[in-house]
Design a protein around this nucleic acid. Structure first.
Lengths: 246, 246
DNA sequence: CGCTTATTTGAAACAAATCAATGATTGTGG
DNA sequence: CCACAATCATTGATTTGTTTCAAATAAGCG
């Protein structure tokens, strides 16, 4: 992980092109620039708690966070993996529906709820971009439901790696991952298991199985080498041209 | 199912208070009223196909539809149950990401894509309502991920019935279902299984188990009597006061 | 370098899927 | 209107993938 200098202005912001502000015109950005504040939370820090008040609308500038729910008996399901440019919070609600916790050091760009709701009314391109991002998130959540509802443990692990590789590629402004990719896993095996609806043991076994099958290499636990992205996508139940449909 | 007269104007529309138009002022509604067209599709009809063009943005006025994806090998996962006031289509995309099919006769209120996108720009309350509904759908999709990822077969069936009861209550303008409720299931056992990420056999067994446990009664396959809603919610893994969190 | 935590691997138990058959409902033509 | 076919739902027996329980190994950290 490279160390970044503290960001001062939206001009030098690494998520300027993808975040909720991406569609804003220079004059709109000027307004946001004045209203925003930054906050950095260490790895393991809580950014929101299910049922508790959430008084900011935040975008992740750097780092990684998980959004999850824990049942009374301890079962936990991660419902979203938050990477740079993803947002936390919901306009119109003052409490969080999920736990959000930083899995690495996270820097947020945030607005007070009331401020953000005003900005949303007064900044047309902010509202349209938020809608687009929310629709994208909805599609992603539905795609993930297919993984959780119908895929085997092995397919789930492959699907997770494929999805992570795609998002990592998009963050570096590529449309698709290259044939061979190195993936830095932001999550522990346990956090991956919670995301996949599996136990940590099953998750670990599937990493081993994919490695033995030659679909991935694991130089260290937090590093995955994908020698052939298409091959791994096949393991994830996708057909040759990227769609998962018949 | 009661037979409705064809709707002519938005004034007499049954979903006026909940659909994408719900927040619109009278002058905004007047514009929508002129642009909309109705269409009725028989049970079993296809409203959209994954990967295929979708040239309308539609709201369900009456009836029920499922949104699903089918994998090459035939595995199917339903990612959304569409009831009156829910919408089909995505502004900014011209193809559907999922199959949408009518499970009962469905009447749609629809706008051509280009028209709807123009309306979205020119009708502030339409855009805000669409955002709110999409955020709600996103929360629902994430809640469902918890069901698919972490719940047992029995809990899934209970959760499905609870969720259906809640939505049925909301459609008749109640905040919460009453203690005892009669539920008319819009879905076959197979469609329920596809929604729950289970097989039809397991689904059927859990209906039987819940019946034997006294949590439900099943006068006919498409009818479920819930004698005590809270009791069933407990079976669905919810704690006493409605939250699923610890 | 030793201690703690994370990950991998193994064996047994279990929940759900699969295979197989029966029973119930719905629709249709004689 | 009833017999028949066809679909849908339930139940039973067995298999299988995943979990659980248990232990060993590897990795991070003061």
């Amino acid at each position: 992980m490279t160390r970044h200098d503290p960001i001062q202005s939206c001009d030098s912001c690494p998520i300027r092109a993808n975040a909720v502000c991406a569609d804003c015109a220079p004059d709109e950005i000027a307004v946001l620039d004045r209203a925003k504040t930054y906050r950095t939370v260490p790895a393991g820090g809580r950014l929101a708690e299910a049922g508790e008040p959430l008084t900011y609308f935040s975008s992740i500038v750097s780092g990684c966070a998980t959004m999850s729910r824990t049942l009374e008996d301890g079962r936990r399901q991660t419902v979203g993996l938050l990477l740079p440019s993803d947002y936390i919070g919901r306009p119109g609600r003052s409490t969080s529906a999920y736990d959000v916790e930083a899995v690495s050091e996270v820097t947020l760009c945030r607005f007070e709820c009331a401020t953000f709701e005003r900005l949303l009314r007064e900044t047309p391109h902010l509202a349209t971009r938020l809608l687009t991002m929310t629709l994208d998130e909805l599609d992603a959540a539905r795609d993930w439901a297919v993984v959780l509802g119908r895929m085997t443990a092995r397919e789930r692990v492959a699907a997770f790696l494929v999805s992570l590789a795609r998002r990592q590629a998009r963050l570096s402004h590529q449309a698709e991952p290259t044939r061979a990719i190195a993936l830095a896993l932001p999550l522990s095996r346990e956090a991956i298991a919670d995301h996949l609806g599996l136990t940590i043991e099953t998750t670990s076994r599937q990493f081993t199985a994919l490695r033995k099958a030659g679909a991935i290499e694991t130089p260290s636990t937090r590093l995955v080498q994908i020698p052939d992205f298409e091959r791994l996508a096949l393991e994830a139940g996708e057909d040759d041209d990227g769609g998962m449909i018949a």
